[in-house]
Structure formats: structure tokens, C-alpha cells
Simulated assay, not measured.
Amino acid sequence: MAVFDAVDCLTTEQACAEDLTAALEDGDPALVTAALGDVARALGLQLHVELAASA
């Protein structure tokens, strides 16, 4: 069974913004921390793919 990873859904800037907004609106510090981590990982993966494509 596959494990859910939010990063798989954060493929656009809009998706990242919506994820962070929802976490901030919830107000739970643990959720905000998790959302920031997910967005950072998503952006890092996107940068890695872009760099690999340009090499």
C-alpha cells in the first residue's frame, strides 16, 4: 500500500500557497511546521528536477 506524501500534491506555487494558507488559518503550530516542511521539500524537489533537466 502506498504511503501518502503531501509533496506529491504540491506541484505548483498555487498549491503550495493554498497548503500554507490552510495551515495558518487552522492555527495549530505543529500543522504550520509540517506544511512549511512539505513546501520546502516540494520546492527542493522542483529545483532538483529543473537543474537535472538543464544539465
Score class of each variant (00 low, 15 high):
residue 30 A to F: 11
residue 27 G to Q: 12
residue 43 L to E: 15
residue 5 D to N: 13
residue 29 P to N: 11
residue 3 V to W: 00
residue 15 A to N: 03
residue 23 A to M: 08
residue 4 F to V: 10
residue 7 V to D: 08
residue 15 A to D: 07
residue 36 L to M: 13
residue 37 G to H: 01
residue 55 A to D: 14
residue 25 E to N: 12
residue 47 L to A: 13
residue 51 L to W: 09
residue 50 E to K: 06
residue 55 A to Y: 01
residue 43 L to H: 05
residue 26 D to A: 07
residue 50 E to M: 14
residue 8 D to K: 15
residue 46 Q to P: 00
residue 16 C to V: 04
residue 27 G to K: 10
residue 41 R to K: 12
residue 29 P to A: 10
residue 46 Q to G: 15
residue 22 A to Y: 03
residue 17 A to Q: 09
residue 40 A to R: 05
residue 25 E to M: 11
residue 29 P to V: 10
residue 27 G to V: 09
residue 15 A to I: 02
residue 6 A to G: 00
residue 45 L to Y: 01
residue 18 E to Y: 08
residue 32 V to S: 05
residue 46 Q to D: 15
residue 1 M to L: 06
residue 53 A to Q: 09
residue 4 F to A: 12
residue 22 A to R: 06
residue 38 D to A: 15
residue 33 T to I: 02
residue 12 T to R: 04
residue 31 L to D: 01
residue 3 V to E: 13
residue 4 F to D: 14
residue 4 F to G: 05
residue 40 A to D: 15
residue 28 D to T: 14
residue 16 C to A: 13
residue 44 G to M: 08
residue 47 L to Y: 02
residue 38 D to F: 06
residue 16 C to L: 12
residue 8 D to M: 07
residue 28 D to H: 02
residue 39 V to R: 01
residue 1 M to Y: 02
residue 51 L to M: 14
residue 40 A to Y: 13
residue 7 V to C: 07
residue 30 A to Q: 10
residue 29 P to Y: 09
residue 42 A to C: 06
residue 47 L to Q: 12
residue 1 M to G: 08
residue 20 L to A: 00
residue 10 L to Y: 04
residue 6 A to F: 11
residue 31 L to G: 06
residue 16 C to G: 01
residue 53 A to E: 09
residue 50 E to S: 06
residue 11 T to G: 02
residue 18 E to G: 11
residue 33 T to H: 09
residue 26 D to C: 05
residue 32 V to I: 13
residue 8 D to V: 09
residue 6 A to M: 04
residue 5 D to R: 02
residue 5 D to G: 08
